[in-house]
Design a protein around this nucleic acid. Structure first.
Lengths: 328, 328
DNA sequence: TCGTGGAACTAGAGCGCTCTAGTCGCTCCG
DNA sequence: CGGAGCGACTAGAGCGCTCTAGTTCCACGA
């Protein structure tokens, strides 16, 4: 920037004002043009590290994601690329901090080395101590969790609503005996899938249906074993899969066993995965309505950085929407 | 770090040597321990911007990816999270630069603001000029492309092999008239899918089969239209889908039309997507064998940064592997 | 004529770190 | 006893930028 200033015949400060369009600095058009011409001629590229050093904080947004990330490409409005793109439009740069082993204070220290504007991570990576440490450094924490937290701004991915809608659809069709698939671990672990299972069971029972949790991992042979058991002990007339994969696997096993779907058993999945249209019968599914312009996650991050985070926004209960196809 | 040095009773230089384990600096155990204790007590967090400023370059690796990214979560060995994780183990931080509109010199300038160690982008984002500009700044460019390039280190994703293997499988089964699905645009655009289509056609013809390209977009109604046409004009006895979605859609349409698969028509897809097991008949597919320890992409990036890039590594032709199920 | 006020600009410090070019003190050889 | 050699350490500069606290200059009113 010194070179640019020299070539333009102004001070470094003036060059900085022009190149950053600093609000409040009144620079006549002529001077501005001189600086910009010099910058172009010299192919000036700013040095963000120097700026961050001076300012005391960077324009980085750290996303702490691991393999099992909630922020997958499959969830378009929470996908990494989407978030990165939204955040960039606001002048920030999104980076992936991928160490799955650290959390709490250790994670906070790793993040703070970058003096980022904000950090996005699942709620379990934050502790009271680490949030305090981040606050001291001026870094805004944003959590992703199943429930809101006093600790920090949290985007609540409460998709129990999907489970309720799935059970509701089966009830509307006249089902009386409902099976809700999913492994015991999922149900216990208080994760997204567990939430779906629990809410599907609760909603079915509220409607007066008989509803059971049927353990099944989303693996090929598991579905056949479940159907074998049912053929001995009696079939349910409705099946809820906490993901389309669960539902699709079971649908395949029922087809193999010659059970009529949806005539004898109705099957419904969740997420409205694109493969639902490939199955025969086509798989009915429930999707969360995530539309609404901005990426919710990116929007929350930017709001939190700019201090306009409204705690009321924390619980983001996505409206569920049944996509009716053939299977239920 | 000044505080740490003061508390440990040493100079800032010594503290730096200890905290960075600078090779070549001989620090007695006692001094080392004093510094580390002080750092711990003061909860010292390094400031990477300051380090980058001093060093003249950062430890960042920029990944320029957009929505249609080749680096999707679906390709585990090229997924963002995987690459970020591998790269982190080597001490670098991966960040997503998501502006899809820039390329060439404009992109290079945007990347260079971060003074990154390396940049990963699709080959078309680099030009001779931009590569020179990056080189001048000491940033290593790594490209992803369909073919290798003299311009820069390139990871070649040549999956035409998948197309050849798919056609080969149908030939082995005794098919004589083969249809290769996929849109005209794909075939013309010299992209991954186009490569698969072209190579499938070529391989089939080399084996003496009659092979046609049948335009079909990967959309629900498109498959039904293709099958309708075939029912009038005659069915092929083998169908290659350049992705499992193409194949799965067609499989569904054939089932709807009452055509026996694989008895009357064999169908094969590519990628071995997890949904292949959900379809009935189960979809036979071809997968690229991407195994082999390290993330190939991350490995190439690290090799390029450390100057041990071997041009011979550029062409990475993945061995294709047919996963036989029911449909072919 | 001399303020006065505002627009346009600048000097210089300093953000936290790394690294060069030393200094200091000790041992050991001639 | 002088000094070479070495291990252990340090002073200080400077990376590129931003921002505070100015200075300079000019128009205009008293």
């Amino acid at each position: 920037m010194s070179d640019v200033a020299r070539q333009a015949g102004v001070s470094r400060a003036t060059a900085s004002y022009v190149l950053n369009r600093t609000p409040g600095a009144r620079i006549p058009e002529q001077t501005r043009a001189k600086v910009l011409a010099a910058a172009e001629a010299l192919r000036y590229v700013p040095h963000v590290s120097a700026r961050s050093l001076r300012r005391g904080r960077s324009d980085l947004v750290v996303g702490h994601v691991d393999g099992s990330a909630i922020m997958s490409d499959r969830l378009p409005f929470f996908g990494l690329v989407q978030v990165a793109s939204e955040v960039r439009k606001a002048g920030y740069t999104f980076l992936i901090h991928g160490d799955p082993t650290v959390s709490g204070l250790a994670a906070a220290r790793a993040w703070l080395a970058l003096r980022p504007a904000a950090v996005v991570a699942t709620l379990d990576r934050f502790t009271e101590e680490s949030v305090a440490m981040l606050a001291e450094a001026g870094t805004v924490p944003v959590a992703l969790g199943r429930r809101s937290s006093e600790l920090t701004a949290t985007v609540v991915l409460d998709d129990g609503e999907l489970g309720r809608a799935a059970a509701g659809r089966l009830a509307d069709r006249g089902c009386r005996r409902i099976a809700v698939l999913g492994s015991h671990e999922d149900l216990a672990a208080d994760q997204v899938v567990g939430n779906r299972i629990a809410e599907a069971l609760a909603a079915a029972r509220e409607r007066g249906l008989e509803a059971h949790h049927v353990p099944m991992r989303p693996q090929v042979d598991a579905a056949a074993r479940v159907v074998d058991g049912w053929l001995r002990d009696g079939l349910p007339d409705g099946v809820v899969g906490p993901t389309d994969r669960h539902a699709g696997l079971l649908l395949g096993a029922l087809t193999d066993a010659g059970v009529d779907v949806p005539g004898r058993v109705a099957v419904i999945g969740m997420d409205d995965d694109p493969f639902c249209d490939l199955l025969r019968p086509r798989l009915t599914s429930v999707r969360a309505d995530l539309t609404g312009g901005d990426t919710p996650l990116a929007g929350v991050v930017l709001a939190a950085i700019e201090g306009r985070w409204d705690p009321g926004d924390a619980v983001r209960r996505f409206p569920a929407h049944v996509v009716v196809r053939d299977s239920a």
